[in-house]
């Protein structure tokens, strides 16, 4: 009905957060560069957090776009107000909100959990690549 809206909303929040984190990282860039000169191998292996956040926003935007297309295919999204056919009557709107709170939240949670696992794996790989450099 409109389950993809939950993921789309999360995607919008993540995109804004990514821009804020990126601006913060750019502010700290001169400091990072100095440190990188000292320990170049450690920094070469580290992926910036803004880049990792972009993984999440890409997953969420990509999924939301495809699901929105599916809703258009099934006639659940129309080019006139209220755009969602389920929002036309209060009875159907209640069902739509229930679906958003169950399926929609479930989708957003699963995508976020998968992204969390990706971040954990990449962090452990970063540690593995920087540890030998520290030991030298």
């Amino acid at each position: 009905m409109a389950c993809f809206l939950v993921s789309a909303a999360e995607a919008a929040i993540v995109t804004v957060t990514t821009q804020i984190v990126l601006a913060h990282e750019n502010k700290l860039l001169p400091k990072y560069r100095r440190e990188a000169e000292e320990t170049s191998e450690q920094h070469a292996a580290k992926i910036p957090f803004s880049h990792k956040l972009r993984w999440l926003s890409n997953l969420l935007w990509g999924g939301s776009l495809q699901l929105a297309f599916e809703h258009v295919w099934h006639g659940e999204i129309v080019p006139w107000t209220p755009f969602l056919t389920a929002a036309a009557t209060p009875a159907e709107a209640t069902i739509m909100l229930h679906e958003m709170s169950t399926v929609g939240v479930g989708m957003a949670l699963l995508v976020t959990a998968v992204w969390g696992a990706m971040v954990l794996v990449s962090s452990s790989l970063e540690k593995k690549t920087t540890l030998p450099a520290l030991a030298e």
Partner: peptide, 15 residues
Amino acid sequence: FLYWGASLMWFVDAI
């Protein structure tokens, strides 16, 4: 990212 995002979401839908 596009296809995996959609796959994960449709997986939840399928459940």
